[in-house]
């Protein structure tokens, strides 16, 4: 009674093999499968690199990158500037990448935290390299100049979102209690400097200086909580008698 299924299973499978109904998959199918996994992983990694470096580019572009130098309120400004959709997609692709990597013994034999850590390291290094190579700056300006479908509107959507508290621009002229800032869009904003404004020590304002302002905007004026030079700061001249 117990031997019956044994005979049946073996006999059935062998019969299928002999009749030619059951065929071995050729080796190239498995090689192709492996290659597809590798391509999938490379593609997912490239997409994550693209999205993370694009986020860095947007933060630089909106000035939010400099937010942390203005303290906790600056950090909040950075968080508010993050492109949520892109961050969500990047996280999604990191999960996809982890699932693909988990297919291989070197990954599943170790805790997930190790492979995830390795992926994060690759993402940070790769994204920093892409951001440093100014790939997005070139791509965006190319897309805008040549009106590339999809890319140009996408760049406009993300680049055209100025931060509510961070204002990068160039000092047009100094005033009694601050200066007039020309924004990248060509608008003029009156910047009010008070005693509570955080300024780099020894910083002298002058027309033409590129600066980042952190503050609250009211119509066309901003009460500055902090000012940060975007170029090397102009220092006070040394006191008389201290010339080198």
């Amino acid at each position: 009674m117990t031997d019956e299924p044994k005979q049946t299973i073996q006999a059935k499978v062998l019969e299928e093999i002999k009749s030619g109904h059951l065929l071995m998959r050729p080796k190239w199918r498995f090689a192709l499968n492996l290659a597809l996994f590798a391509v999938g992983m490379a593609l997912a990694l490239a997409l994550v690199w693209y999205m993370v470096s694009f986020t860095i580019f947007i933060l630089h572009d909106s000035g939010a990158w400099f937010g942390p130098s203005f303290g906790p309120r600056g950090w909040l400004a950075v968080i508010g500037s993050l492109p949520g959709v892109i961050i969500f997609l990047a996280i999604l692709f990191v999960i996809v990448l982890e699932i693909l990597v988990h297919h291989f013994a070197f990954s599943y034999r170790r805790p997930v935290v190790y492979s995830l850590g390795g992926i994060m390291l690759l993402v940070v290094i790769g994204s920093a390299a892409v951001a440093k190579a100014r790939v997005h700056e070139r791509l965006t300006s190319y897309a805008e100049r040549h009106h590339v479908p999809m890319m140009a509107p996408l760049a406009r959507v993300f680049r055209g979102r100025p931060n509510a508290h961070l204002f990068p621009g160039t000092i047009a002229t100094t005033t009694e209690n601050g200066f007039v800032l020309t924004t990248r869009r060509g608008d003029f904003i009156y910047i009010h400097i008070s005693q509570s404004t955080r300024l780099p020590p020894g910083f002298l304002f002058a027309a033409g200086d590129k600066v980042m302002i952190f503050g609250d905007r009211m119509a066309s004026s901003v009460t500055a909580f902090g000012v940060r030079p975007l170029c090397p700061p102009r220092q006070l001249p040394p006191p008389p008698g201290c010339d080198e």
């Binding site: 299973i9 059935k12 059951l22 065929l23 080796k27 199918r29």
Partner: peptide, 18 residues
């Protein structure tokens, strides 16, 4: 159970080159 075991052998044969 027996059907699943049979399916295991079929899968094993089909994928033996992996």
């Amino acid at each position: 159970g027996p059907d699943v075991v049979q399916e295991v052998f079929i899968k094993a044969y089909v994928n033996i080159k992996s």
